[in-house]
Simulated assay, not measured.
Amino acid sequence: MEKQDQLLMKKQNKNLVLEIIKNQSPISRMEIAKITGMSPTSITRIVNELHLQGFVKETELVTSGVGRKAVLLDVCDDVFFTIGVEIDKFIIKIGIVNYVGEIVELRRIPRLESESYFETLEKVNMNLKELIEKNRIPHQRIIGIGVGLPGFIDNQNGVVKVSDQLKWKNVNLAEDLKQLTAFEVMIDNELKMKIVAEDFKGSAKNSHHAVLVGIGSGIGSAMILNGEIYRGDSNNAGEIGHTVINPTGNVCNCGKIGCLATYISEGAIVGDARKVKEIDSILDVFEAYRNGESWAHNLMDRTTTYIALAVSNILCLYNPEMIILSGDTIERLPEIKQPIEQKCDLYIWEPLKERVKIVYSQLGEHGVVLGAAIQIQNLLLDLE
């Protein structure tokens, strides 16, 4: 037992040193020793091990006070890579992400609403192979694939229980994609992956309690509480799209009446817009809104009202320090930011309004891909 405890401590120390170098590079061995409280001898031993494994390199010399120059340490960003994949209703995004969380290349592939589950997987596999070959990345340096997609996802078993947008039900996505690609695969809800990215390098960085709200083909949320993703009992925490706001309202794809998604999702907006005018897509609604057409203003006024109500309810339930608004609707129609903020000011309970920050995603279309790649790195990177 004592030997196991010693091995665990060595492993934890090694991970700690690597994390410090990753986040504070370039940094000297002496600075790491001061931060960790470990002896310079221990730091030298750990750094030598990390160097041999290809994680750490020495960089330029700098003068440290008078006399000797200190050798600075940095991480090797190409020691390994992960793949982030976003699968949405009409688009697939695939990104190669290096060790420090930089997207080496991002590819967007159209997805047909009519294409089958296996056609989508083949499309992912083919484009993934092309990207790897194009960037000349050895397969042994790719440690896994992370996938973010909408719906009820059993992340522990790699199963898509239900995805209304993709029309998938009870599919073994992680195993099927692993069979095609020969890489380890992790899947999760797209918004949970997006908030991982926001926590890593976006609006939620350094925040212990944050909620991300995604508004687009559907509406949902994801939460970081006490610095960790809050999943609930079955990974469904945050599924605000299926909270009932009008029991005599519209019929939802889930079979219930009056779900929030039936008033805010782009499909719901388009459906109501077609009662007034012949349009092709949500972009036509946005154009009509910009042109001052009253029906479009009425629709988007209703949408911003329900968004503000959703924000108000989230604040009362979870009391986060920050709410991040994201998604295609806001990115493609940024003019609605001001109406949302005005209505949030109207509906949010006064004691909560004083402290909460309402901000917008800084990551745009990269969020899900980056978060999925970071999450698979977190799950699979295990330094011995």
Results as ranks from 00 to 15, higher is better:
107 R>N: 04
291 N>D: 11
268 A>W: 06
212 L>G: 07
248 T>E: 12
8 L>T: 08
205 K>C: 06
125 N>L: 04
26 P>Q: 13
234 S>C: 09
322 M>Y: 04
238 G>A: 12
68 R>L: 07
109 I>E: 04
182 A>D: 13
184 E>I: 05
331 E>W: 03
372 A>R: 01
379 L>H: 11
294 S>W: 11
348 I>F: 09
211 V>G: 08
311 V>D: 07
67 G>W: 06
194 K>D: 02
265 S>H: 00
137 I>C: 05
64 S>T: 14
318 Y>W: 09
79 V>R: 14
106 L>M: 12
216 G>H: 02
300 M>Q: 15
149 L>E: 01
133 E>W: 00
349 W>C: 13
382 D>F: 01
191 L>M: 13
345 D>C: 10
317 L>G: 10
364 G>R: 02
212 L>D: 04
243 T>D: 10
168 W>M: 00
326 S>K: 07
347 Y>H: 10
41 T>A: 13
52 L>N: 15
161 K>D: 04
277 K>S: 09
261 A>Q: 11
285 V>A: 10
171 V>P: 03
21 I>W: 06
17 V>C: 07
169 K>D: 00
122 E>A: 14
284 D>E: 14
162 V>F: 10
32 I>A: 12
212 L>R: 04
320 P>C: 12
147 V>Q: 13
127 N>Q: 07
172 N>C: 01
193 M>S: 08
347 Y>L: 15
114 S>W: 03
349 W>I: 14
265 S>V: 01
73 L>A: 10
6 Q>V: 04
295 W>Y: 13
303 T>G: 13
144 G>S: 11
14 K>A: 11
73 L>N: 09
376 I>Q: 02
77 D>H: 12
169 K>S: 06
329 T>V: 14
330 I>C: 02
66 V>L: 13
52 L>I: 14
273 A>G: 14
305 T>D: 14
174 A>Y: 05
74 D>T: 15
56 V>K: 04
376 I>M: 09
49 E>D: 15
378 N>T: 01
291 N>I: 00
49 E>C: 13
68 R>H: 01
142 I>T: 02
320 P>Y: 07
99 Y>K: 03
197 A>W: 05
267 G>S: 07
166 L>R: 07
230 Y>P: 00
192 K>F: 00
